[in-house]
Design a protein around this nucleic acid. Structure first.
Lengths: 223, 223
DNA sequence: CAATTAAAAAACAATCCTGTATGTTTTGGT
DNA sequence: ACCAAAACATACAGGATTGTTTTTTAATTG
């Protein structure tokens, strides 16, 4: 966030709300900087000084908007949460399912999108927070509803994407778990060798599994 | 680590090596305390003071054995590494494969053991370190060979457990990845709802997948 | 344009952590 | 029993981080 100058008399807005606008602008810069810090430095090393430095704002100014470190972090987490919900929608909207048929291609694209989702910077930031929440009760309580939100989103999207499954909850849940647990497990395995090749194979494999689960689901309904 | 008293004249050892023994005893207490701190407090919050407190040792005494925080942590990581290798061997040795046949039961037990492995306290401690290493280059370099060790161990064990696969590396690697990525993904999902039930289903499902991979492998060889 | 309020920056105090330095106790050898 | 060395404990200095206070600057209002 560089220096902002008030648009003068010939500017569009003549003062009214300029302060508020600048304020929200700075707040957004701070929250995004906090997220960048999570990614670059890790949750634990995200100090108020670093956030301010990233945002090119004095620490005092930041403390004016967010009176404590906890407030900044919680606001950043909420901001990140919204962002991730949006990113999910955007990614999944890009799935190319022209004829609405449950072809392998559709399954594969879904899996690939899930993998992309787990490779977004926002995912990394989110995992930093989740990891920290394991030993931080207060943070964990803050995160619980956020996590529920994501689980709901996964489920709702899957139901709308694959309406044939919507009355076969058991199988749908299993399919979601297969995709989510696997992609997250891979995303969190930073140091494995040959990662790309192995991931590619896993994605193909998961796709096969989804088809298999679907078959079972259909059979299950028939019986 | 409580107070230790030297076995007096009527004790078994009359001084020789007593000091050294006490020293290693304390060092072990310190390293285990460090690991406990990783689990209870997280890697970032594991301070030298906390480790000493856990070990019931003065910080000065600790600094005598480990001259810096980094040294304690690195020693603790090495200690944890050995412990985890042993735990893995112990767990996998318990797999009940009486007739050496590749029955579903054997696959299922293998999967279950992998899941147990991912639920040991040592796994949690290890993940704390891995997570920290993402933003700590020095730590990451220290962990790289450790990670390779585990990958080798997984592979070697799988090869000895399922010798039929040993000349079908591709499929064996896939099978390992399926198990490892999934169990780790589940283990790291602390906040999901209905975890137990979902995990149970996943374990059953993975078992089916292993059998499926095995079939493909055999067919692949035949062709 | 002056006065009032909000925003931003700077300075400060309190706490925590690391590493070191110093002092005390325990052990091993003679 | 005595000395030297190792082990253990305490105390302190430097740096970092948080939250508060104070000062300065900018914006809004009448």
């Amino acid at each position: 966030m560089g220096k902002l100058e008030k648009p003068l008399k010939n500017g569009v807005r003549k003062g009214l709300g300029w302060q508020a606008e600048k304020s929200t602008l700075m707040q957004v810069a701070i929250l995004e900087s906090a997220i960048d810090c999570f990614i670059d430095l890790g949750y634990a090393n995200t100090t108020t000084a670093k956030i301010a430095e990233y945002a090119q704002v004095s620490r005092g100014a930041m403390m004016h908007h967010f009176p404590s470190r906890l407030r900044v972090l919680q606001a950043a987490i909420e901001y990140l949460h919204k962002k991730r919900l949006e990113e999910y929608d955007t990614l999944m909207a890009n799935i190319d399912a022209p004829d609405r048929a449950l072809s392998r291609a559709v399954f594969y694209e879904s899996v690939q999108m899930a993998w992309r989702y787990a490779n977004l910077p926002s995912f990394t930031a989110y995992q930093e927070i989740l990891a920290a929440s394991r030993t931080d009760r207060e943070l964990a309580e803050f995160m619980a509803p956020v996590e529920r939100d994501f689980e709901n989103q996964y489920r709702e999207h899957a139901k709308s994407m694959f309406p044939h499954w919507s009355d076969l909850g058991q199988y749908l849940d299993l399919a979601i778990d297969v995709v989510v647990f696997t992609t997250q497990g891979m995303a969190l395995s930073h140091m494995v060798q040959n990662k790309e090749a192995r991931v590619d194979k896993m994605l193909e494999f998961i796709t096969d599994q989804l088809q298999l689960i679907y078959s079972s689901a259909v059979e299950g309904r028939v019986e």
